[in-house]
Computed example of a mutant assay.
Amino acid sequence: MKISVLGCGRWGSCIAWYLDKIGHDVLSGGLENAPEFIALKNNRKNDYLSYPDSIEVSSDLKYSVERAEVIVISISCQHLREYMTDIAKYDLTGKTIVLCMKGIEETTGERLSEVVSEFIDKDKTKVAVWVGPGHPQDYVRGIPNCMVIDSEDEEVKKKLVKEFNSELIRFYIGTDLIGTEIGAAAKNVIGICAGMLDGLGYTSLKGGLMARAPREVAALIKVMGGNEMSAYGLCHLGDYEATLFSKWSHNRMYGEQLIKGQKYDKLAEGVMTTKAIYKLAKKMGVEMPIVNQLYEVLFENKEITPALDALFKRDVRSEF
């Protein structure tokens, strides 16, 4: 299968490396002036992995799109609309776009598959999402994990799972695109909360966070028309270990550094996703106390201790 992976950050480069490893014809595409692209183009390696000679590297977007049967996109989710404006200039007939990113568009509250759908003819071009736990640092060392692929099109997701499955990544067929996308996006938000607890030295409280956060995420998924059980699947709860405990999680590290008063200069998608989910929950009338308090800390300069106090002072209620 001819696959173009657009975006060559740590996840984009890992996806290209993985798909090549399992036998696909892979192109890794990026922006000509981006440092991560330059490193791969000139040295065929980055901080996480090295590319074999079989992976083509190109900054020619037209060529990258037109050569591919499957276009995998792995970029900052808040730039997806702008990126799709460029991609949609080319013929996408018969192609499948796979989104390997987690987030909600902050300006519109749309899921990422909904953003893409505005630029395509859904009868001619299919959209899928690929989410779940794991870190490039682990995959390149041969440490396996499980992930999920979801789509509105049954045949597309079954085909992708069959083509992408291996002993390194066991894929599952998703059954709830809404829940898969909302759950995956919200996981990054909770990752920031976990980092804040680490920064405070309250690491044991992450157990409570892990138990309670999926409850409010499930409520949002349900009111959005999805299956609330998705919050307990690979897209959300299944991804917690990789985000809430890993030293490699950008979102967890962002939260820890914030508490310590240190600047974190890598991309933490959960920041803007917090704002997006906060606005979405208000619009849908869903109570999300953890998200609400994080929003106030990130965007209204609330101190973390009063935010925690607010959660613990809420009315006592049954767990379920």
Score class of each variant (00 low, 15 high):
Lys159Thr: 13
Gly179Asp: 13
Ile71Ala: 06
Leu244Lys: 02
Val271Tyr: 15
Lys158Trp: 06
Ala184Val: 08
Glu56Asn: 13
Ser230Cys: 09
Cys8Gly: 02
Glu319Arg: 15
Lys313Asp: 15
Ser113Lys: 14
Thr243Ser: 06
Gly29Asn: 13
Tyr254Arg: 01
Leu280Asn: 13
Lys282Val: 04
Trp17Tyr: 00
Asn227Arg: 12
Leu205His: 13
Pro144Thr: 12
Ser318Cys: 05
Ala231Val: 09
Asp265Leu: 02
Glu110Val: 04
Phe312Tyr: 14
Lys279His: 07
Val5Tyr: 04
Gln293Asn: 06
Ile221Asp: 11
Met288Thr: 07
Asp198Met: 01
Asp123Cys: 04
Asp91Met: 09
Thr203Gly: 04
Cys193Asn: 05
Ala307Lys: 09
Lys162Ser: 14
Glu69Ile: 04
Leu280Trp: 11
Glu269Asp: 07
Asn301His: 07
Glu66Leu: 14
Ile178Arg: 04
Ile173Met: 03
Tyr295Phe: 13
Ser50Ile: 08
Tyr83Gly: 03
Lys126Pro: 12
Asp47His: 02
Glu154Gly: 05
Gln257Met: 14
Thr243Ile: 11
Val70Pro: 05
Ser58Ile: 10
Leu311Asn: 12
Asn227Gln: 13
Lys95Pro: 11
Cys77Thr: 15
Gly201Tyr: 02
Ile221Phe: 06
Leu200Glu: 03
Trp17Glu: 00
Leu19Val: 03
Ser64Ile: 08
Met196Cys: 05
Gly207Phe: 09
Asn43Met: 06
Arg81Met: 01
Tyr264Thr: 00
Lys260Gly: 09
Gly134Ala: 06
Val161Cys: 10
Tyr18Leu: 00
Arg67Ser: 10
Glu163Met: 14
Phe312Gln: 09
Asp265Ile: 06
Val70Glu: 12
Val189Phe: 07
Tyr202Ser: 05
Arg212Phe: 12
Ser54Ile: 03
Asp91Ile: 06
Lys222Gly: 12
Gly285Lys: 10
Met84Ala: 05
Ala268Asn: 14
Gly132Asn: 02
Asn227Ile: 05
Thr96Met: 05
Leu31Val: 12
Leu258Tyr: 11
Ser59Phe: 09
Asn33Leu: 15
Asn33Phe: 09
Val286Tyr: 02
Gln257Arg: 15
Tyr90Asp: 12
Arg81Trp: 03
Cys77Glu: 05
Gly7Ile: 02
Tyr232Gly: 08
Lys89Thr: 04
Ile97Arg: 10
Ser58His: 15
Ile73Thr: 13
Ala194Phe: 02
Phe312Val: 03
